[in-house]
Design a binder for these strands. Structure first.
Length: 348
DNA sequence: AAACCATCCAACCGCTCGAAC
DNA sequence: AGTTCGAGCGGTTGGATGGTT
Protein backbone atom coordinates (compact mmCIF):
# COMPACT_ATOMS: atom_id res chain seq x y z
CA UNK A 1 0.00 0.00 0.00
CA UNK A 2 1.42 3.28 -1.01
CA UNK A 3 1.79 6.11 1.26
CA UNK A 4 -0.97 8.64 1.41
CA UNK A 5 -0.14 12.03 -0.03
CA UNK A 6 0.64 14.72 2.48
CA UNK A 7 -1.98 16.96 0.95
CA UNK A 8 -4.68 16.99 -1.66
CA UNK A 9 -2.64 17.73 -4.73
CA UNK A 10 -5.66 18.87 -6.62
CA UNK A 11 -6.56 21.43 -4.05
CA UNK A 12 -3.27 23.12 -3.48
CA UNK A 13 -1.72 25.95 -5.34
CA UNK A 14 1.63 25.39 -6.94
CA UNK A 15 4.18 27.65 -8.43
CA UNK A 16 5.59 30.95 -7.32
CA UNK A 17 4.37 32.51 -4.13
CA UNK A 18 2.50 35.77 -4.26
CA UNK A 19 3.32 38.61 -1.88
CA UNK A 20 -0.04 38.03 -0.22
CA UNK A 21 0.78 34.40 0.43
CA UNK A 22 4.17 35.38 1.75
CA UNK A 23 2.56 37.89 4.08
CA UNK A 24 0.06 35.35 5.33
CA UNK A 25 2.69 32.79 6.01
CA UNK A 26 5.02 35.24 7.65
CA UNK A 27 2.28 36.63 9.84
CA UNK A 28 1.21 33.19 10.88
CA UNK A 29 4.74 32.10 11.61
CA UNK A 30 5.45 35.23 13.59
CA UNK A 31 2.40 34.63 15.69
CA UNK A 32 2.27 30.90 16.05
CA UNK A 33 5.34 29.27 14.60
CA UNK A 34 4.92 25.95 12.92
CA UNK A 35 3.27 24.43 15.92
CA UNK A 36 5.38 21.43 15.11
CA UNK A 37 3.22 20.55 12.19
CA UNK A 38 3.87 21.87 8.74
CA UNK A 39 1.17 19.80 7.19
CA UNK A 40 -1.57 21.39 9.22
CA UNK A 41 -0.11 24.85 8.93
CA UNK A 42 -1.49 25.91 5.54
CA UNK A 43 -5.03 25.37 6.66
CA UNK A 44 -4.52 27.24 9.88
CA UNK A 45 -2.81 30.06 8.05
CA UNK A 46 -5.45 30.20 5.38
CA UNK A 47 -3.15 29.16 2.60
CA UNK A 48 -3.96 26.85 -0.25
CA UNK A 49 -0.53 25.37 -0.23
CA UNK A 50 1.06 22.08 0.58
CA UNK A 51 2.71 22.04 3.97
CA UNK A 52 5.95 21.10 2.38
CA UNK A 53 5.71 24.08 0.13
CA UNK A 54 5.10 26.35 3.12
CA UNK A 55 8.02 24.89 4.91
CA UNK A 56 10.30 25.40 1.95
CA UNK A 57 9.10 28.94 1.37
CA UNK A 58 9.64 29.84 4.97
CA UNK A 59 12.97 28.22 5.38
CA UNK A 60 14.44 29.29 2.10
CA UNK A 61 12.98 32.71 1.75
CA UNK A 62 10.86 34.19 4.51
CA UNK A 63 12.78 33.07 7.52
CA UNK A 64 14.51 35.92 9.34
CA UNK A 65 18.21 36.45 8.77
CA UNK A 66 18.25 34.83 5.39
CA UNK A 67 21.13 36.19 3.44
CA UNK A 68 20.60 36.77 -0.23
CA UNK A 69 22.96 37.99 -2.82
CA UNK A 70 26.59 37.48 -3.65
CA UNK A 71 28.60 34.85 -1.92
CA UNK A 72 31.81 36.08 -0.42
CA UNK A 73 35.16 34.63 -1.21
CA UNK A 74 35.26 33.09 2.20
CA UNK A 75 31.92 31.46 1.65
CA UNK A 76 33.20 30.18 -1.67
CA UNK A 77 36.12 28.59 -0.01
CA UNK A 78 34.11 27.05 2.75
CA UNK A 79 31.78 25.54 0.20
CA UNK A 80 34.68 24.26 -1.85
CA UNK A 81 36.47 22.76 1.05
CA UNK A 82 33.43 21.09 2.42
CA UNK A 83 32.27 19.85 -0.93
CA UNK A 84 35.69 18.38 -1.47
CA UNK A 85 35.48 16.55 1.79
CA UNK A 86 31.86 15.56 2.14
CA UNK A 87 30.32 16.03 -1.25
CA UNK A 88 26.87 17.36 -1.75
CA UNK A 89 25.71 17.44 1.82
CA UNK A 90 24.21 20.81 1.30
CA UNK A 91 22.47 21.05 4.61
CA UNK A 92 25.70 20.44 6.44
CA UNK A 93 27.53 22.91 4.30
CA UNK A 94 24.76 25.40 4.86
CA UNK A 95 25.10 24.94 8.57
CA UNK A 96 28.50 26.55 8.29
CA UNK A 97 27.32 29.56 6.40
CA UNK A 98 24.98 31.55 8.57
CA UNK A 99 22.09 32.98 6.66
CA UNK A 100 22.59 30.71 3.69
CA UNK A 101 20.25 27.89 2.94
CA UNK A 102 21.09 24.55 1.51
CA UNK A 103 19.00 25.34 -1.51
CA UNK A 104 20.90 28.56 -2.01
CA UNK A 105 24.23 26.87 -1.75
CA UNK A 106 23.14 24.03 -3.96
CA UNK A 107 22.02 26.44 -6.61
CA UNK A 108 25.12 28.51 -6.25
CA UNK A 109 27.29 25.48 -6.54
CA UNK A 110 25.51 24.06 -9.53
CA UNK A 111 25.29 27.28 -11.44
CA UNK A 112 28.38 29.22 -10.57
CA UNK A 113 30.91 27.77 -8.24
CA UNK A 114 31.32 24.50 -10.03
CA UNK A 115 31.97 26.27 -13.25
CA UNK A 116 34.26 28.69 -11.56
CA UNK A 117 36.26 25.82 -10.22
CA UNK A 118 36.30 23.94 -13.41
CA UNK A 119 37.51 27.02 -15.17
CA UNK A 120 38.49 26.36 -18.69
CA UNK A 121 40.13 23.10 -17.90
CA UNK A 122 38.60 19.89 -19.08
CA UNK A 123 37.22 17.71 -16.39
CA UNK A 124 38.36 14.37 -17.61
CA UNK A 125 38.69 12.15 -14.64
CA UNK A 126 37.85 14.93 -12.29
CA UNK A 127 34.81 15.41 -10.22
CA UNK A 128 33.53 15.59 -6.77
CA UNK A 129 34.48 12.96 -4.34
CA UNK A 130 32.60 9.80 -5.08
CA UNK A 131 29.57 10.01 -2.95
CA UNK A 132 28.30 6.88 -1.50
CA UNK A 133 24.71 6.11 -2.24
CA UNK A 134 22.57 7.99 0.14
CA UNK A 135 21.56 5.95 3.08
CA UNK A 136 20.20 8.47 5.39
CA UNK A 137 20.93 11.90 6.56
CA UNK A 138 22.27 10.74 9.86
CA UNK A 139 24.70 8.54 8.20
CA UNK A 140 27.01 10.65 6.21
CA UNK A 141 29.82 8.79 4.69
CA UNK A 142 32.37 11.39 3.97
CA UNK A 143 35.29 10.90 1.78
CA UNK A 144 38.80 10.94 3.02
CA UNK A 145 40.46 13.97 1.64
CA UNK A 146 43.34 13.17 -0.59
CA UNK A 147 45.54 15.23 1.59
CA UNK A 148 48.88 16.26 0.48
CA UNK A 149 51.27 18.70 1.90
CA UNK A 150 50.90 20.97 -1.06
CA UNK A 151 48.41 23.75 -0.64
CA UNK A 152 44.96 23.14 -1.95
CA UNK A 153 45.96 19.91 -3.51
CA UNK A 154 42.82 18.20 -2.41
CA UNK A 155 40.64 20.66 -4.22
CA UNK A 156 42.77 20.46 -7.27
CA UNK A 157 42.26 16.77 -7.39
CA UNK A 158 38.59 17.34 -7.81
CA UNK A 159 38.62 20.49 -9.81
CA UNK A 160 41.51 21.56 -11.90
CA UNK A 161 40.73 25.15 -11.24
CA UNK A 162 40.19 24.84 -7.58
CA UNK A 163 43.69 25.54 -6.51
CA UNK A 164 43.71 28.74 -8.44
CA UNK A 165 40.42 29.78 -6.97
CA UNK A 166 41.51 29.07 -3.49
CA UNK A 167 44.79 30.77 -4.01
CA UNK A 168 43.14 33.89 -5.22
CA UNK A 169 42.96 34.72 -1.61
CA UNK A 170 46.12 35.88 -0.03
CA UNK A 171 45.48 34.05 3.17
CA UNK A 172 45.30 30.33 3.47
CA UNK A 173 42.02 28.76 4.27
CA UNK A 174 42.03 29.02 7.99
CA UNK A 175 39.48 27.51 10.23
CA UNK A 176 37.14 30.17 11.35
CA UNK A 177 35.09 29.91 14.48
CA UNK A 178 32.05 29.27 12.43
CA UNK A 179 33.78 26.88 10.14
CA UNK A 180 33.00 23.28 10.28
CA UNK A 181 35.29 21.00 8.46
CA UNK A 182 34.85 17.37 8.07
CA UNK A 183 37.78 15.14 7.78
CA UNK A 184 36.18 11.94 6.99
CA UNK A 185 36.80 8.46 5.97
CA UNK A 186 36.33 7.03 2.60
CA UNK A 187 33.85 4.49 1.52
CA UNK A 188 36.56 1.93 2.06
CA UNK A 189 36.04 2.45 5.66
CA UNK A 190 32.44 1.84 5.35
CA UNK A 191 31.57 -1.45 6.73
CA UNK A 192 28.36 -2.27 5.11
CA UNK A 193 29.39 -5.78 5.74
CA UNK A 194 29.42 -5.05 9.39
CA UNK A 195 26.37 -6.56 10.80
CA UNK A 196 26.21 -4.56 13.92
CA UNK A 197 26.01 -1.46 11.95
CA UNK A 198 28.62 0.97 13.12
CA UNK A 199 30.42 2.31 10.18
CA UNK A 200 32.00 5.33 8.79
CA UNK A 201 33.97 7.52 11.02
CA UNK A 202 33.34 11.08 10.37
CA UNK A 203 35.48 13.65 11.93
CA UNK A 204 34.26 17.08 12.14
CA UNK A 205 36.47 19.84 13.27
CA UNK A 206 34.04 22.29 14.63
CA UNK A 207 34.58 25.81 15.65
CA UNK A 208 38.09 25.01 16.39
CA UNK A 209 39.52 28.36 17.14
CA UNK A 210 37.51 29.54 20.05
CA UNK A 211 39.23 30.30 23.27
CA UNK A 212 36.91 27.96 25.05
CA UNK A 213 37.32 24.98 22.94
CA UNK A 214 35.32 21.97 23.48
CA UNK A 215 35.88 18.61 22.16
CA UNK A 216 32.83 16.96 20.97
CA UNK A 217 33.05 13.36 20.21
CA UNK A 218 29.96 12.20 18.68
CA UNK A 219 29.42 8.94 17.09
CA UNK A 220 26.57 9.05 14.78
CA UNK A 221 25.11 5.72 14.21
CA UNK A 222 22.21 4.97 12.08
CA UNK A 223 21.93 1.59 10.56
CA UNK A 224 25.57 1.87 9.86
CA UNK A 225 26.94 5.29 10.40
CA UNK A 226 29.27 6.55 12.98
CA UNK A 227 30.40 10.05 13.45
CA UNK A 228 32.86 11.67 15.62
CA UNK A 229 32.58 15.38 15.79
CA UNK A 230 34.61 18.02 17.43
CA UNK A 231 33.28 21.31 18.40
CA UNK A 232 33.78 24.39 20.36
CA UNK A 233 31.98 25.05 23.51
CA UNK A 234 30.19 28.15 22.50
CA UNK A 235 27.10 26.11 21.89
CA UNK A 236 26.61 27.90 18.67
CA UNK A 237 24.25 25.75 16.86
CA UNK A 238 24.30 25.55 13.18
CA UNK A 239 21.25 25.07 11.18
CA UNK A 240 20.49 24.03 7.72
CA UNK A 241 17.92 25.77 5.70
CA UNK A 242 15.44 23.46 7.26
CA UNK A 243 16.51 24.42 10.68
CA UNK A 244 18.30 21.19 11.34
CA UNK A 245 20.72 21.73 14.13
CA UNK A 246 24.26 20.70 13.85
CA UNK A 247 27.14 20.98 16.21
CA UNK A 248 27.00 23.05 19.29
CA UNK A 249 26.77 20.01 21.43
CA UNK A 250 23.65 18.65 19.96
CA UNK A 251 22.97 15.31 21.35
CA UNK A 252 20.90 12.55 19.99
CA UNK A 253 19.03 10.02 21.97
CA UNK A 254 16.56 7.39 21.26
CA UNK A 255 15.43 5.54 18.27
CA UNK A 256 18.42 4.25 16.49
CA UNK A 257 20.54 6.75 18.29
CA UNK A 258 21.57 5.62 21.68
CA UNK A 259 23.93 6.90 24.17
CA UNK A 260 24.52 9.39 26.78
CA UNK A 261 26.35 12.57 27.07
CA UNK A 262 29.63 12.53 28.78
CA UNK A 263 31.72 15.50 29.20
CA UNK A 264 34.64 16.83 31.04
CA UNK A 265 36.53 19.96 31.11
CA UNK A 266 40.18 20.49 31.30
CA UNK A 267 41.95 23.73 31.31
CA UNK A 268 40.95 24.29 27.79
CA UNK A 269 37.37 23.63 28.43
CA UNK A 270 37.12 20.46 26.44
CA UNK A 271 34.16 18.32 26.79
CA UNK A 272 33.13 15.28 24.94
CA UNK A 273 29.92 13.85 23.81
CA UNK A 274 29.38 10.38 22.67
CA UNK A 275 26.52 8.71 20.99
CA UNK A 276 26.55 5.03 20.51
CA UNK A 277 24.21 2.73 18.88
CA UNK A 278 25.98 -0.08 17.22
CA UNK A 279 24.40 -2.79 19.16
CA UNK A 280 26.69 -2.78 22.15
CA UNK A 281 25.44 -1.55 25.44
CA UNK A 282 25.30 2.17 25.41
CA UNK A 283 26.27 2.30 29.03
CA UNK A 284 29.23 0.04 28.48
CA UNK A 285 30.40 2.12 25.62
CA UNK A 286 29.80 5.24 27.55
CA UNK A 287 31.97 4.09 30.38
CA UNK A 288 34.60 2.98 28.00
CA UNK A 289 34.65 6.25 26.22
CA UNK A 290 34.44 8.21 29.41
CA UNK A 291 37.43 6.43 30.80
CA UNK A 292 39.36 6.95 27.64
CA UNK A 293 38.61 10.56 27.46
CA UNK A 294 39.49 11.19 31.04
CA UNK A 295 42.69 9.32 30.57
CA UNK A 296 43.42 11.38 27.54
CA UNK A 297 42.88 14.60 29.34
CA UNK A 298 46.37 14.49 30.68
CA UNK A 299 47.75 14.10 27.24
CA UNK A 300 45.85 16.88 25.66
CA UNK A 301 48.31 19.65 26.10
CA UNK A 302 50.88 17.65 24.28
CA UNK A 303 48.41 16.77 21.64
CA UNK A 304 47.85 20.40 20.96
CA UNK A 305 51.16 20.32 19.27
CA UNK A 306 50.09 17.88 16.63
CA UNK A 307 50.87 19.06 13.18
CA UNK A 308 48.45 18.95 10.39
CA UNK A 309 50.31 16.04 8.87
CA UNK A 310 49.98 14.24 12.13
CA UNK A 311 46.30 14.85 12.20
CA UNK A 312 46.10 13.43 8.75
CA UNK A 313 48.00 10.37 9.83
CA UNK A 314 45.77 9.93 12.82
CA UNK A 315 42.71 10.20 10.73
CA UNK A 316 44.05 7.82 8.18
CA UNK A 317 44.90 5.40 10.89
CA UNK A 318 41.51 5.74 12.39
CA UNK A 319 39.98 5.17 9.01
CA UNK A 320 42.02 2.07 8.39
CA UNK A 321 41.40 0.56 11.75
CA UNK A 322 37.77 1.36 11.45
CA UNK A 323 37.40 -0.94 8.54
CA UNK A 324 35.72 -3.43 10.77
CA UNK A 325 33.10 -0.88 11.44
CA UNK A 326 33.84 -0.39 15.08
CA UNK A 327 35.09 2.69 16.69
CA UNK A 328 38.31 1.80 18.35
CA UNK A 329 40.15 3.39 21.17
CA UNK A 330 42.88 4.43 18.88
CA UNK A 331 40.41 6.25 16.75
CA UNK A 332 39.13 8.13 19.67
CA UNK A 333 42.61 9.01 20.65
CA UNK A 334 43.39 10.02 17.15
CA UNK A 335 40.24 11.95 16.87
CA UNK A 336 40.88 13.56 20.13
CA UNK A 337 44.29 14.58 19.06
CA UNK A 338 42.94 15.87 15.84
CA UNK A 339 40.46 17.98 17.66
CA UNK A 340 43.12 19.32 19.89
CA UNK A 341 45.34 20.11 17.00
CA UNK A 342 42.52 21.71 15.18
CA UNK A 343 42.79 24.57 17.54
CA UNK A 344 45.79 25.75 15.67
CA UNK A 345 45.05 24.16 12.37
CA UNK A 346 45.45 26.13 9.27
CA UNK A 347 43.84 24.34 6.43
CA UNK A 348 46.68 23.21 4.22
C1' DA B 1 12.61 43.25 -33.27
C1' DA B 2 12.61 38.49 -32.95
C1' DA B 3 14.55 34.17 -32.15
C1' DC B 4 17.59 31.66 -29.75
C1' DC B 5 20.50 30.42 -25.99
C1' DA B 6 22.43 30.49 -21.35
C1' DT B 7 21.90 31.36 -16.68
C1' DC B 8 19.65 31.72 -12.37
C1' DC B 9 16.95 30.16 -8.70
C1' DA B 10 12.44 29.18 -6.55
C1' DA B 11 9.87 25.39 -6.19
C1' DC B 12 8.72 20.68 -6.80
C1' DC B 13 9.47 15.75 -6.38
C1' DG B 14 10.67 11.46 -4.53
C1' DC B 15 13.03 9.28 -1.20
C1' DT B 16 14.51 7.90 3.63
C1' DC B 17 14.20 8.33 8.33
C1' DG B 18 12.32 8.43 13.07
C1' DA B 19 8.28 8.87 15.84
C1' DA B 20 3.86 7.64 16.95
C1' DC B 21 0.41 4.47 17.07
C1' DA C 1 6.32 -5.96 14.57
C1' DG C 2 4.09 -3.50 11.22
C1' DT C 3 2.00 0.63 9.45
C1' DT C 4 1.31 5.45 8.90
C1' DC C 5 2.79 10.02 8.84
C1' DG C 6 5.53 14.28 9.15
C1' DA C 7 10.12 16.09 8.65
C1' DG C 8 14.21 16.55 6.33
C1' DC C 9 17.21 16.06 2.46
C1' DG C 10 19.19 16.20 -2.21
C1' DG C 11 18.19 16.02 -7.14
C1' DT C 12 15.72 18.01 -10.70
C1' DT C 13 12.60 21.01 -13.18
C1' DG C 14 10.78 24.95 -15.34
C1' DG C 15 9.77 29.82 -15.55
C1' DA C 16 11.93 34.30 -15.57
C1' DT C 17 15.49 37.01 -17.06
C1' DG C 18 19.30 38.67 -19.63
C1' DG C 19 22.58 38.32 -23.34
C1' DT C 20 23.73 37.26 -28.08
C1' DT C 21 22.98 36.60 -32.87
Amino acid sequence: MGRAPCCDKNNVKKGPWSPEEDAKLKEFMDKHGTGGNWIALPQKAGLRRCGKSCRLRWLNYLRPNIKHGEFTEHEDRVICSMYASIGSRWSIIASQLPGRTDNDIKNYWNTKLKKKLMGSTTMAGAGPPPRAPRQNHHQHRPVLLPYSSSPHSNYSNFFPGAGALLQQSAEPLTLQPQDHYMLGSSGSLNPMGNSNGASAVQLQLLHATTAHRQLQVKEECGSGGAMIAFGCGDQQSCSSSDGTQYGGGQYVHGGRHHGKEMSFDNNNGYSAYGVYGNGASAVEQEHKLSFQLQHQQEQQQAQLDYSYEEIKQLLMTAAASGADGLIHDSELIGAHAAAAAAGKLTMM
